[in-house]
Structure formats: C-alpha cells, structure tokens
Amino acid sequence: MKELTLSQAVNEALVEEMERDPRVFLIGEDIGLHGGAFAVTKGIFQRFGPERVRNTPISEAAIAGAAVGAALVGARPVAELMYTDFITIAMDQVVNQGAKVKYMFGGKARVPMVLRMPFGAGRANAGQHSQSLEAWLCHVPGLKVVMPSTPADAKGLLKSAIREDNLIIFLENKHLYSQKGPVPEGEYTIPLGAAEIKRAGGDVTVVATGRQVTIALGAAEKLSKEGIDAEVLDPRTLWPLDREAIIASVKKTGRLVTVHEAVKRFGFGAEVAAIVAESEAFDYLDAPIRRVAGAEVPVPFSKFLEDLFLPDEQKIIAACKAVLA
C-alpha cells in the first residue's frame, strides 16, 4: 500500500489507462498545461501532449457532444467539466444524446465515455459551484453514476469506468481531493455496482455517499463510545446500485439512515429508502427511516449558512439516535 490523495489516485488511474489504451484521451477546460482547476490532471499534458489531453474553450455543450461523437466512432474520451453545476449547459448532449443513442438505435451504438465532475459544497463557492446533482443523473436510463469516497476506490472505479462501453458519470467530491488514503500498489480495478461496508456494525445501517462516508465514519466512532454500533455502507456506484448489500445490512440492523449532501427531496436517499420499503428488509425495520441531507435551499455563501446547509457528524448522530430511540 501507498498513501495518495484522491486527486493523485484519479491522476494515476488516468495515466495508467492512457498508457494501456491509445484510444483513451482527455478533454476539458484548463486540463492542459495548468492541470485542471483542481490540479487533478497535473502533469498528464506534459507526458502525453496536446492531442491526448485536449484543452478546450469554455464550451460545455461542445465538450460533452464532442466526447459523445468521439465515443461513437470508437475513441474513448474522458471528459471533465470543471464543476458539476456546469452540466446544466451540457445536459442535452448527456441526457438526450449520449445516454439514449444505444437504445434509440436498437443497440448498435456504443458510447465508451466517462464524464468526470467535481461536486459538493463547503468551499464558499455559493449557488452555482457547489451543487450535488447526482439524483438528476441517476434518473436517466442509459447513464451509470459513480461516486467514490476514498482514493483507493476512486482509482479502481475510474479504471473500470474507462473500460466500460457506457457513458459513466464520475462524481468527485472537491473536499476529498486533498484527503489521503491507502492505495494498493500495482494494477487493480473495482467493479461498478458493488457497495462496500466501510464499518461493520449491528445497530443501525448508515448508507452514505461521497464525502459523507468519511463524516458518517466519524459519527459512528462517536456513537460507539455511547454503545451504539453503526454500520456504514458506501454504495460507491449510485447506479447500478448494490441493492442486495443495502437490504442485507438493514435486515441485520433493523434501522436505516441515509446521508448525502444533495438536497433531501427526491434525492438518492429517497431511492434507498424506497428500495428498502419495497424489499423483504421492510419487515425487519424497527423504526421509521431517517434521511440526513443538504438543506432544501440553493447552497449559500456565508460559512455560517453553508455549515447549516451541509450534513455533519452531529446531524448523523442525531438521526441514528432517533431511529434507536
């Protein structure tokens, strides 16, 4: 094992896949010499040159469309939008085109493409640079949506995503970029659609995503001091979703709390809750399900307000205690 930040882990996955497959190339804003707004592609331009690292004008719709078109003829683009918020500008190419062409064309098209996007609040970037929009994307048949929580997961999942013949949305929480974690030496991949229990426990299942996994783990440590044994489950891929892992965990603990940064209504937590309610795990529930999520407002600027907006350890602890009361 080596210690890498999530940013370094993503960078390593990109470099390894570009070395492995000459059809893989990067396309996005300021990803060239500058190495990306969050320095994730640092050094790749110098190593592979301007044709493999396509530095673009600020044209999100054209970036997404160019990636879809390139994928359709057999290249394997990894596109980056500087912030998830900017997918609003590229939405036609992602939702109406890339996600649907295979089905609309009766199966003949392949779109081997990854769309990487930093997301999340807590950096004083306000309403247009802080959103978590994964629920929109999970709602579109034809897309797969990945959200890693650790450097090791980010690397293994991204390598799998690049090898898929599908349009993969790869969501990276900005706060995690600088967070270090152990990463296996050598070649490995992590399959899409496999959840991981990040902390085993018997009292309550906490299904958390992205940065909230780390926060939920912190909450679980504090709860353990009070004799509450929380299980933290990270789906890692939001779609395809590892339903079996969630159902098995809830059957074991009898309680469910979901945690994400996106606003609560119609969010990923609602889908997890519905899956449990529709499954045999429903009969094992000893308390109503609780959802911890971002407040139902645009992300505010002031640190004071932004902290209130975000889920945190205290909110997770309170939800766990509520379902155990």
Binding site: G69, V73, N96, Q97, K108
Partner: peptide, 30 residues
C-alpha cells in the same frame, strides 16, 4: 441510424447532432 454505414443517427433535438459530428471528427483524428 446505421453505424456500419457511417450514419451516426437522425436527431430529435434541433442542433443536437452538430457537436456529435465534430466529436466524430475528433474521434477520427484520435
């Protein structure tokens, strides 16, 4: 659409095929 013939598809969105065409050209180059 008929990808074997090089037809990358009709399109229900006005203008939707324009960036895809440039993308296909980019893919050809790559």
């Amino acid at each position: 659409a008929d990808l074997d013939l090089g037809h990358l598809g009709a399109n229900g969105i006005v203008g939707g095929g324009i960036p895809i065409a440039a993308g296909a050209a980019l893919g050809i180059r790559q």
